[in-house]
């Protein structure tokens, strides 16, 4: 995992649920990860999937990813190239799904000082987010949870732990 990443912001609000991140009607009909990316944020921001670039960042308000446990709501963003999600807070299953898919997440209030299109830098080692209008600190993940994320997700982590990798 990179310790410092810079990306272009897509800004969203509070309580964005997994149905608008990845609609329920696709949850059992689309199994290809790349195809999931084509529907990312379909019912929230139809411009996103067409215009997202690798390394872009999502910056959002509170309770990002509430609702269904569907992991595709993380996979579709990861496969679309999103480098990390910064939110004021995360819904708990979404938080776990990000760790398990190896998609970095940052909990802080950066949403207060960014606009879509801004460039933002996350320094994971320092625990800081730098925006054009201010910097934010964020709490580190628990070391045991960080180990899953830095292994690239739960599958590589479990394989390593079971001596299969």
């Amino acid at each position: 995992m990179e310790t410092r990443i810079t990306g272009r912001v897509w800004k969203y609000g509070d309580d964005v649920n997994t149905d608008v991140i990845f609609p329920g009607k696709y949850t059992y009909s689309i199994t290809d990860r790349k195809e999931m990316a084509q529907h990312a944020l379909e019912d929230l921001d139809p411009t996103f999937a067409k215009n997202v670039k690798p390394g872009d960042l999502i910056v959002a308000g509170k309770n990002w990813g509430c609702g269904s446990s569907r992991e595709q709501a993380v996979i579709c963003l990861k496969e679309a190239g999103v480098g990390a999600i910064i939110a004021r807070s995360f819904a708990r299953i979404y938080f776990r799904n990000c760790i398990n898919e190896g998609l970095p997440i940052v909990t802080c209030d950066a949403v207060d000082s960014v606009e879509t299109g801004d460039e933002v830098t996350i320094d994971f080692a320092a625990g800081k987010v730098f925006t054009p209008r201010g910097e934010y600190t964020f709490p580190p993940l628990d070391p045991s949870v960080m180990e899953i994320l830095s292994s690239g997700g739960l599958v590589p982590y479990v394989r390593k732990k079971l001596g299969l990798a």
């Binding site: 446990s69 992991e71 993380v74 299953i93 776990r96 997700g153 739960l154 599958v155 479990v158 079971l162």
Partner: peptide, 28 residues
């Protein structure tokens, strides 16, 4: 499934997880 907390109505500790985690629970 996110509505797994329902089973707390019978006095269990029940919580929702994702698909990858479910696979890991099966394995470990």
């Amino acid at each position: 499934d996110s509505h797994t907390p329902l089973h707390g109505a019978l006095g269990a500790f029940a919580t929702g997880i994702g698909r990858t985690e479910a696979a890991a629970v099966m394995a470990t």
